[in-house]
Design a protein around this nucleic acid. Sequence first.
DNA 1: CGCCAACTTGATGGAAGTCAAATCCAGTGG
DNA 2: CCACTGGATTTGACTTCCATCAAGTTGGCG
Lengths: 237, 237
Amino acid sequence: MRTTPDKGQQTRLGASHVPLACDDDCRFFREECQSQEGRPEGPLLKVSRGTTIYSHEQPAHFCYRLIEGAVRLYRVLPDGRRQILEICLPSETFGLETSDTYSATAEAIGEVIVLRCPRACIAELQDERPETRQAMLSMLSRGMCAAQDHVAMLGHQNARERVACYLLRLALGHEERPCVITLPMGRQDMADYLGLTIETTCRSLSDLKAARIITTPDRHRILIHNMEKLEAVAARS
Amino acid sequence: MRTTPDKGQQTRLGASHVPLACDDDCRFFREECQSQEGRPEGPLLKVSRGTTIYSHEQPAHFCYRLIEGAVRLYRVLPDGRRQILEICLPSETFGLETSDTYSATAEAIGEVIVLRCPRACIAELQDERPETRQAMLSMLSRGMCAAQDHVAMLGHQNARERVACYLLRLALGHEERPCVITLPMGRQDMADYLGLTIETTCRSLSDLKAARIITTPDRHRILIHNMEKLEAVAARS
DNA sequence: CGCCAACTTGATGGAAGTCAAATCCAGTGG
DNA sequence: CCACTGGATTTGACTTCCATCAAGTTGGCG
């Protein structure tokens, strides 16, 4: 299963954006970190569909907070396959490395708006303010926990369970019934995240449809009609 | 595939060990963090085979550095299966959570010696010394990277590749030829780490033996005769 | 020496991958 | 407005790999 590369424009986030003064970036990033909510005033980067935000093993100068859209973090394995490590949603932070280079490639899925902060500023802030330090640690630890959940899923769950888990994750916080979730990505991205092929992912969705647990009014929207059953499928109970 | 629990004594690390003054623990932990090498003088905990060092979702009061032996970090999934998230080797740190509870269970594989440090001390140290802060971050980030490697492996590699990868990881730093590695754990632990059954793990090892890449003089020792071929298998090239 | 647990090997079925074809849209231009 | 086109998605047929169940085999230890 060789993944077809995204045919969208494979541009690269270039020097066209003039970096702001460190202080400005830092302030906005910090405010975001503290409030976690709302759309910050200030310098936002708009990134178009398919654009690489940063690349695996390149020097890690910036970290990012996602404001709008979705971003995939992935690695390409030696044989050309792609493993998506995380699909970031709004208000999540990515690129928070502590090694000198990025541990994955970050790419915009669809149109994306991010807030960018130089690492040097983060380091400075950490020295000044203990609460930033705490925020950093808790962001890293949340990422760690997500990665561990991912390992547990890939290690022991079958295709239907993986898809169900993923839908539940997207449904978190949506309280309407029936719950409507809007997939920010296509089936291939979903498959590469779940460690499945696109065909198996489709079939699992079809199974869930056949079981009357979900319906798919269009390709990017999924209605969850029976949350309990979906949870049962996800937990293999 | 329901994992048989370790039949070793399932004791629990109790109050039998008198905690030291915070300062003492901190000093030793810090020195360890700085030097990364050698066996520290000071308060060491000896933990016997199969003992639980801490449990998933219990309050996280301590973090640990492994001095001797091996420790498995795992979660038990709702259906009773066990996924090993990490197998810690000497000089690695574990239990470095920033949430209030542990994100996995830690258990001694065989006899183990650890250095234990209260989280409160770590926090204190971080406030005082920037280099400790840096060490913390880099430890966390190394853990994150390991988890991501694990995800990539479980997502896209077949049984033989997984086993080969794991042997290569254990062989890191061993320069002798042929390279001799001593498995700190049994086949079941290996299987639970690799997301395979014990039978498939065995068969993959047998395949590698048949291909004259390795030999197994006894159950816990593996000789790598052809590192290049092993790397080729691991990378699917 | 024999027992028991850990490990290995064998036979079989089922889940997911692969290759191929059909279908569904969204966007385009007549 | 509608046909057309190309990519994304879905379904089908077949194959492969791994889990499962079962039966040895090994080796450490009383």
